[in-house]
Simulated assay, not measured.
Amino acid sequence: MVAIAGMVTLADDSQLFAKTLLGPDRDIFPIEAAGLRELRETGGVLTPKVLHASPRLLVLERMRPRPDDEAFWERLGRAVAVLHTSTAADRFGWHRPGWLGRLRQDNTWDSDGYAFLAERRILRWLSEPLVEAAFDATECRALERLCAALPDLVPQRPPCLTHGDLWQENVVSTAVGEPVLIDPAVSYNWPETDLSMLWCSPRPPASERFFAVYQEIAGIDDGWRERMEIFHLRELLSTIAHDDDDWGAAEAVRKIIAPFRRSSGPTRV
């Protein structure tokens, strides 16, 4: 757990959302606030208004729970498609390091998307103690082989601004049902970074409308469903590193890297 969060009721009965950090002071909340601002001002998506951001406290405008009907997921698909198609860039990364949970996210700029994905989003986790304990040397080599094969597995695309942690619990709503994004881990990265978080995490049946609308507006390269698990490796490894592997994240990683346990794995496009 990184923070304690909840609704705060003011003297006039209005409500705000607040989070307070557990443990020593870190710049988690100021970076979260900067990410929300980047998504809103550069990417054009709705995010809560930041009322206060300090190393100990983050206060946000109150939002509502997310509805799970097709109309809502269609609006979300349109918003994320516009975010991705309107922010194309020539470098992967961000102007400052970030956080994923309570662990650092390396956003050092890189013109090579394959190196960025391999070194800063996947292999970066191998040095975390709980990840080291979860996988043996053969499995680590298989993960390295998968990363070496990324140019054969992932089509080249320009980076765009991504939310970075876009699973369904980081999507809420305005009072009138417009999608609002929270808790970002932003960087300029492949758009499938965001798609994989929604695709691979538990989600309601109505979310199929998100992917249909997104594809209509932004387009997705053929074979995208098969690539989702590759992009999701970062989330699986992060889950293990945070000691949250009570639902089989390590086994999910082993399944993904199984074809690469030999000296040469298959290639897919």
Score class of each variant (00 low, 15 high):
185 A>H: 04
112 D>A: 09
42 T>Q: 15
19 K>L: 07
115 A>D: 10
254 R>T: 00
40 R>I: 05
6 G>T: 08
144 E>W: 01
154 V>W: 04
136 D>L: 02
140 C>N: 14
173 S>R: 06
179 P>I: 00
10 L>A: 06
31 I>Q: 11
70 E>L: 04
121 R>I: 03
28 I>M: 08
176 V>T: 13
86 S>N: 12
35 G>A: 04
84 H>F: 07
109 W>G: 12
181 L>I: 07
227 R>I: 07
94 W>E: 06
31 I>W: 07
6 G>D: 03
79 A>Q: 06
252 A>F: 01
112 D>K: 02
196 S>K: 02
262 R>Y: 01
135 F>L: 13
122 I>L: 03
63 M>W: 04
88 A>C: 08
200 C>N: 07
120 R>G: 10
39 L>T: 04
92 F>R: 11
220 I>Q: 15
81 A>F: 12
95 H>A: 15
195 L>N: 02
158 P>M: 11
217 I>F: 09
126 L>Q: 09
5 A>Q: 07
63 M>D: 08
91 R>T: 15
33 A>W: 03
1 M>N: 04
191 P>A: 06
142 A>C: 05
55 P>R: 04
118 A>R: 05
105 Q>Y: 02
28 I>T: 09
265 G>M: 07
268 R>H: 10
88 A>I: 08
77 G>I: 11
13 D>L: 14
167 W>G: 06
260 F>R: 00
246 D>F: 06
98 G>R: 04
67 P>M: 05
207 S>L: 10
126 L>P: 05
175 A>R: 07
190 W>C: 05
89 A>V: 07
144 E>D: 14
79 A>G: 00
261 R>S: 01
267 T>V: 13
150 L>N: 06
260 F>S: 06
235 E>F: 14
217 I>E: 13
240 I>Y: 07
243 D>Q: 10
29 F>N: 02
100 L>T: 07
128 E>F: 10
80 V>H: 05
253 V>F: 05
4 I>D: 08
263 S>V: 12
250 A>S: 13
238 S>Y: 09
93 G>H: 10
101 G>T: 06
78 R>E: 14
73 W>Y: 08
256 I>M: 02
2 V>A: 08
99 W>N: 03
122 I>T: 12
3 A>Y: 10
2 V>H: 00
156 Q>F: 15
119 E>W: 02
109 W>F: 14
112 D>E: 05
226 E>W: 12
165 D>S: 09
177 G>H: 07
21 L>H: 09
113 G>Y: 12
131 V>R: 02
167 W>F: 13
120 R>N: 11
180 V>S: 06
4 I>E: 02
157 R>G: 09
133 A>G: 12
124 R>T: 05
173 S>Q: 00
101 G>N: 04
247 W>G: 02
187 S>W: 12
230 I>K: 01
104 R>E: 10
